[in-house]
Design a protein around this nucleic acid. Structure first.
Lengths: 120, 120
DNA sequence: CCGCTGATTAGATGAACTTCTACATAGTGG
DNA sequence: CCACTATGTAGAAGTTCATCTAATCAGCGG
């Protein structure tokens, strides 16, 4: 896995929270792409299950928790992967996914409101 | 403004970060709705301009910064409003928008990775 | 009261997205 | 080498979304 695909290239979480300064078009495009990946209820729940799994989790343990077909889960996992939020690896018959905390934290920081901002 | 519309009812930012525990279907639906509002480059940039304005900002100061028509900006602002991320008020001829930090911080907290989680 | 400007609403159109079924690929084990 | 299981890919169908133009609403000034 981790194959080369046309995906959002993480430019490195490098911009100030939006409560501090506005985003330029490039930053907005990258941020919006990540938010789009999280904008589906199934994907957000998938992301939360993977992120809270503490390590990695097998696709076979994900599929059963949703009322959609396997290919649909597969599709959603690819979207999360292309957004840089998770990565995966095949080991034998099974494929394991884990979350990429840096990416999550970058998006979190984008929306955060620093203490100084709360005071002013 | 602040009219009654079918929108995402903020249930109060009340769930743990997804790196700690998975979301149930209801929480995922509410979270995904907010992320969807932020999933468009124009909307995310609008949000960042409003949030970093320090107070409120007139629609007339927003429209000129984008290459889309006025009605399109209006549409995007409504989406942000329905997601509970901004609110607005008409004063005379002009309409002013401001950000709702609580909502922003709730979403930010959802994706945050608490210190203890980084250690374990 | 009428025209003007700012902003939103309504309706239409083309693109993107979610989901499915059918099929393909990867790996295990007899 | 073949059957079987776990995932992923391809393509299609229905729905949602972003955007535009045209029309409407709100407030100001003559």
């Amino acid at each position: 896995m981790s194959k080369q695909e046309i995906s959002v290239q993480p430019s490195g979480g490098c911009c100030a929270p939006i409560s501090i300064s506005a985003l330029d078009e490039t930053q907005a495009a990258e941020g919006a792409a990540v938010f789009k990946a999280l904008s589906d209820p199934i994907r957000l729940r998938l992301m939360s299950i993977i992120a809270s799994a503490g390590g990695e989790i097998c696709v076979c343990d994900l599929t059963g928790q949703f009322d959609v077909s396997g290919p649909t889960i597969s599709h959603h996992l690819r979207v999360l992967r292309q957004a840089g939020l998770v990565d995966c690896e095949r080991r034998g018959t099974w494929v394991y996914y884990w979350s990429l905390p840096e990416r999550m934290q970058w998006v979190s920081a984008l929306l955060s409101i620093p203490e100084p901002a709360l005071i002013s």
